[in-house]
Nucleic acid binder design. Structure first.
Lengths: 238, 238
DNA sequence: GTCATTATCGAACCTCGTTCTATCATCGAA
DNA sequence: TTCGATGATAGAACGAGGTTCGATAATGAC
């Protein structure tokens, strides 16, 4: 009963019954496809089994449960993100590089909102999450910072990326999945509600409602990111 | 069939059957208790009904579903947080005040990790979430910033608070709930794993592992928060 | 060929959110 | 007082989901 959970079957000489060609790879790819196509709620063990042309029980040969499945799926796609990020390193200023990497990561999460929720849960083990953390942090190694400042700095940057990408990922339950209502209109409703509020009770909300209406999510993220980077630049004495 | 969802029964002259004394208040309080005692997974409609000494169906008289229940529970406790926050306003420098408010909010979410996940989902309607947003933002109204800078500024601060509090909220599934393993030891295991990594492949992780081991979560949050605030101070020309 | 190992399959179980219908209590009108 | 209308309550039943389990098939070593 040595399950291939720690060492995928694909790595070993292929044997075993060939009825339906499974493997960690196939399971994970199918899971990612389901996630991409219809979001986190679409990833059910039964749907996954159906797509693989197999039974639910088979999946448990490759993963220990649904949590494990999601974790692996995340690590799976994070591998690609990692390649992108590492390709963009070392060209300029440390903070510029860090910025480019953060933006790349952000874009990836926006592309796949399901990444956000469970993101950074797998930093304990060696995997893409840890590599990502390492790559981000390595930029700060080039600056004149204390270890503590470096540690807090990366945490801050990751936090900004995740929280902003998460923000964008949340959709209204019914509509947007099929594109019936686009995000702009969705956000426009927020703005419309806000405008009806008493300006004396909500002066701030009124002062930014125009900014909010039709705002670009990416700008919002970049704004937050640059605040953090400005703080880091200050700390590094630049 | 006028459900009391928009106007709680408690506000009207008390009538109706008295078999089990329900009300929006009672339902929400019980829900919050369950959440506090054993986390988000403990809040099931059946458990809630049992605690109230009633049937599952009754709960649907007060809330439209589980999402609604959670949203209301959050708004319920956010009311208290709001009071704390508003009590701390207007004493000093705008950014100092903002900092104090952010820390208060952070503490509240750390106290109740279940707040974090669904936090900021109810800013569309008038409620405690929106008030919170307003109170935070009002501090920036006192600074010389453009509307866009204010908008991005509050988003950034909220993002830092939420993402850091969320980080702290995640526990290892089995142990910490009953206090068998405390958080320090839990984090220590991360550090132990990291120390076994190849220092050439993971220079950054190695450089901060001592910092990470036994680190104070709150310091980490404050570090990130101060980076953002430093950026804001810069923007405001202070 | 035999046998242990590797891998697959789906029925069955349990929990959960939600719906539906039956029932009870109270009040206002006839 | 009687009788609907409305306000509330209760729990059975449904369907979907994650997980467990035992049966079974394929493979490789001897």
């Amino acid at each position: 009963m040595t399950s291939p959970r720690t060492q995928p079957a694909a790595d070993r000489p292929r044997r075993g019954r060939q009825r339906a060609s499974h493997s960690s790879e196939a399971v994970l790819s199918a899971a990612v496809d389901l996630l991409d196509e219809a979001g986190e709620s679409a990833l059910t063990l039964r749907a996954l089994a159906a797509r693989l042309g197999t039974g639910v029980g088979s999946i448990y040969w490759y993963v220990s449960g649904k949590d494990d499945l999601i974790q692996r799926a995340i690590d799976h796609v994070l591998g690609g993100v990692l390649a992108d990020i590492e390709a963009r390193a070392g060209t300029g200023d440390a903070l510029d590089d860090l910025r480019v990497m953060a933006v790349t990561l952000f874009d990836a999460i926006v592309d796949r909102p399901w990444l956000g929720t469970h993101f950074m849960r797998g930093i304990d083990v060696e995997g893409s999450s840890l590599r990502l953390y390492e790559d981000l942090g390595r930029q700060l190694l080039r600056l004149d910072l204390t270890p503590r400042q470096r540690f807090h700095g990366v945490s801050a940057v990751v936090g900004v990326v995740v929280s902003n990408a998460l923000d964008m990922g949340q959709e209204p339950p019914p509509s947007v999945l099929d594109g019936a209502v686009d995000r702009d209109e969705f956000l426009g409703r927020y703005a419309a509600t806000w405008r009806t509020l008493d300006p004396d009770a909500y002066p701030f909300v009124h002062s930014i409602v125009d900014e909010f209406d039709g705002h670009d999510d990416k700008d919002q993220f970049l704004g937050a990111l640059d605040l953090t980077l400005a703080g880091l630049r200050l700390q590094a004495g630049l």
